[in-house]
Nucleic acid binder design. Structure first.
Length: 653
RNA sequence: GCCGAAGUAGCUCAGCGGUAGAGCAACGCUUUCGUAAAGCGUAGGCCGUGGGUUCGAUUCCCACCUUCGGCUCCA
């Protein structure tokens, strides 16, 4: 006799087991028409047609794009429609696994022939056919034996079934899209929407490879990505957002704006052009300044270090495959993939007292890592990069305050780049299965990091098991102007590397004894290459004035104003600004167009009128005409905007 | 590294067994112009690299390199 509690607190009593649909109907026929599933006790999503036998809290899930539960149901069901369509078009296709994911769903399968984008229109047409037929999703349950028998010839489904049974399920469920025995079926735990007709706003997005169980040594499968929304309008918005991401692509903008290039013969290494390097240097200068403010000392350590040092640090053993190595006079060397050993070697010079701690050692460390060729990605994932790296050597007792300090510094830095607190996500990555150190010390260090984040006024979520083998870490993700997340900053607690068995970094404590330091590895921007790539996409190449490679372009109307234009350029350049004059014989319209496309922040038109008034007619990148400015006012305006690090309206919140 | 797709002028792209095409950019000349493209002309190519098939390959086949989309990885 189930007693159902609704979200508003109302209680419905039923004399016998009911289905979600019956509950929805009891609430109202309108709701029943819109219902696609129910959620029990805030955890289990269930088909509308399945019986509910015991008391529970129940939410009716309707087809809405702002409800993650609804999207889960729609996308999980759309994955079935996709799989059915592919099976119909490519008989002999083996199905593996088709879950909903962020932004859509995928289905891993093994078709007899490769599937490519050219097949999408046919797949989508078939899917629309299945949707138009509006066939019900019917759940069929079998005993373990019967269910296993149904998956007998299918390696992947058999494996899924066995895993479900291992997990403790007593029955195996299949979902038929239509009539059992007649229509397509798939082993699946569910849940699903009532019928295929709900899945109108679906689209096949991409095809890629994937491994069975994510294991490189296992079968290679074809992964077909799709997405589905409740409303076709939301699908359009989603597709529009993808277009937007394409427009912001840092590789495209980097080329258009002459920031950098990548050389085919030298994969994974960036050639920075004058304009790109200008931004890069501004980033470094800025961080150098911030680090000084926060009590860091800057150092520089060798790019190539001997194998013996990497053996002592443990890197040779663990990361040998990903290190570039070289040899001289029969000794092995490696190009540094990290800066920490070098920083510890600096720390170890001379005797350190507890009074010297914490010691914050920073370096714009140029590192090389031999990343797998397939992992390279524009300037976001490269083999040669520079980090705003630093290592804080301190005592256990100092960890928490150092982390608080770091979080505050990081928040201030991110805000200057257009990522205010609400655009920062924090994760605490805790102890992994494979780890060193006892549980008591893990308890202590995880708590220290968590407390520090809270003390800095930030919220975090847990990322269980994702910590480094030597200690927990905090990971900071930035959400850009179109909502994409990029992990940048991190701080990791490490007592392994400075420990006795590794590089043995010690200090003399108050009581005269020698103690080992603990170390915090930390970056804020991370790889400058990557961070700059993210900034390009975040700003769509329209950098704030303080970062912009070309802040002002003077546009003379005719050659008669060239001299005046050059005078203005020299004057602003003397104040440290990045200014050019467009000396081409083009007409003004062409010069304006060019300047806007190049994303120059300000363009100052000078004609006869301006020469006479010693002024400029100003326009900004957005195309707003700002009127006439005499030179003093013009210069003051620019300097103030640079000084404030003012952000463009597109990201200011 | 693995799976799929792609690589043609500086850029964006067309062509696809028979002498390599456009627009923009560049360069030259004319124009000196008031807020998103002045006009005319010139030059520009180992059609990613290597092999094969063919009378003939940018085009078809194979291998490799690089890039892109994923997977795996990311100290």
């Amino acid at each position: 006799m189930p007693r159902i509690t609704l979200p508003d607190g109302k209680v419905l009593d039923f004399p016998a087991p009911v289905t979600g649909l019956m509950v929805a109907t009891a609430i109202g026929p309108g709701l029943a028409r819109k219902a696609i599933g129910v959620k029990l006790d805030g955890t289990e999503i269930r088909d509308l047609a399945r019986p509910i036998e015991s008391d529970c809290a129940l939410k009716v899930i309707t087809a809405r794009d702002d409800d993650p539960d609804a999207l889960f149901l729609l996308r999980h069901s759309a994955a079935h429609v996709l799989a059915e369509a592919i099976c119909a078009l490519h008989p002999g296709t083996r199905l593996a696994y088709g879950p909903p994911v962020e932004d859509g769903f995928f289905y891993d399968l093994k078709p007899p022939q490769p599937i490519s984008e050219a097949d999408f229109p046919a797949i989508e047409a078939k899917m629309q056919e299945i949707v138009a037929a509006n066939r019900p999703f019917v759940r069929c349950e079998y005993t373990a034996a019967d269910g296993l028998a149904r998956t007998q010839d299918d390696k992947y489904k058999r494996d899924n079934a066995e895993r479900a049974l291992q997990k403790g399920d007593s029955k195996l469920s299949f979902y038929v899209s239509g009539q059992p025995g007649k229509d397509w079926e798939d082993l699946c735990a569910g849940p699903h929407v009532p019928s295929t007709g709900w899945l109108k706003a679906s689209k096949v997005m991409a095809v890629a490879g994937a491994y069975w169980h994510g294991d490189q040594a296992s079968d290679q499968l074809t992964r077909v990505y799709g997405t589905c929304f409740a409303d076709e309008k939301t699908l359009k918005v989603h597709l529009h957002r993808l277009e937007e991401a394409k427009r912001r692509n840092h590789r495209k903008l980097g080329k258009e704006m002459h920031l950098f290039h990548l050389e085919e013969d030298n994969p994974g290494q960036v050639f920075w052009h004058p304009r790109g390097w200008s931004i890069y240097v501004t980033l470094m200068d800025y961080m150098r300044h911030k680090q000084r403010e926060h009590g860091y000392v800057e150092v520089h350590t060798p790019s190539v270090m001997a194998r013996s040092l990497w053996e002592r640090s443990g890197h040779w053993e663990k990361y040998r495959e990903n290190m570039f190595t070289t040899e001289s006079e029969k000794r092995d060397f490696a190009i540094k993939p990290m800066n920490c050993p070098g920083h510890l070697l600096i720390f170890k010079q001379g005797l350190k007292s507890y009074r010297d701690l914490p010691m914050r050692i920073a370096e714009f460390g140029s590192c090389c890592r031999n990343e797998a060729s397939g992992a390279l990605h524009g300037i976001l994932r490269v083999r040669g990069f520079v980090q705003d790296d630093a290592h804080i050597l301190c005592t256990d007792a100092q960890v928490e305050s150092e982390v608080v300090n770091f979080c505050r510094m990081l928040t201030a830095v991110y805000a200057d780049f257009g990522f205010p607190a609400e655009r920062i996500g924090v994760k605490l990555a805790t102890r992994p299965d494979k780890r060193i150190g006892d549980d008591a010390s893990w308890d202590k260090s995880e708590k220290a990091l968590g407390d520090a984040v809270a003390a800095a006024g930030m919220r975090y979520t847990l990322s269980p098991g994702e910590g480094a083998f030597y200690g927990p870490k905090l990971e900071f993700t930035l959400f850009d102007a179109i909502g994409r997340g990029w992990q940048c900053g991190t701080i990791q607690l490490d007592s392994n590397l400075p420990g006795k068995d590794r590089l043995d970094a010690t200090y003399v404590a108050e009581d005269g004894s020698r103690k080992n330091c603990v170390m915090l590895h930390r970056v804020i921007l991370g790889s400058l290459e990557r961070f700059l790539g993210i900034l390009i996409e975040h700003f769509e190449g329209k950098f704030p004035l303080w970062l912009a490679p070309e802040q002002v372009r003077i546009l003379p109307i005719s050659d008669a104003q060239l001299g005046f234009a050059r005078t203005i350029r020299d004057r602003l350049a003397a104040r440290g600004m990045r200014v050019t004059v467009d000396e081409k014989a083009d007409m003004l319209g062409a010069k304006v167009r060019e300047a806007r496309l190049q994303r120059v922040n300000y363009f100052a038109v000078v004609g006869q009128k301006e020469v006479e008034a010693s002024a400029v007619a100003l326009q900004n990148q957005a195309g707003e005409k700002l009127g006439s400015f005499v030179l003093d006012a013009f210069e003051a305006r620019l300097l103030q905007e640079i000084d404030e690090k003012r952000l463009p309206a597109s990201v200011a919140s």
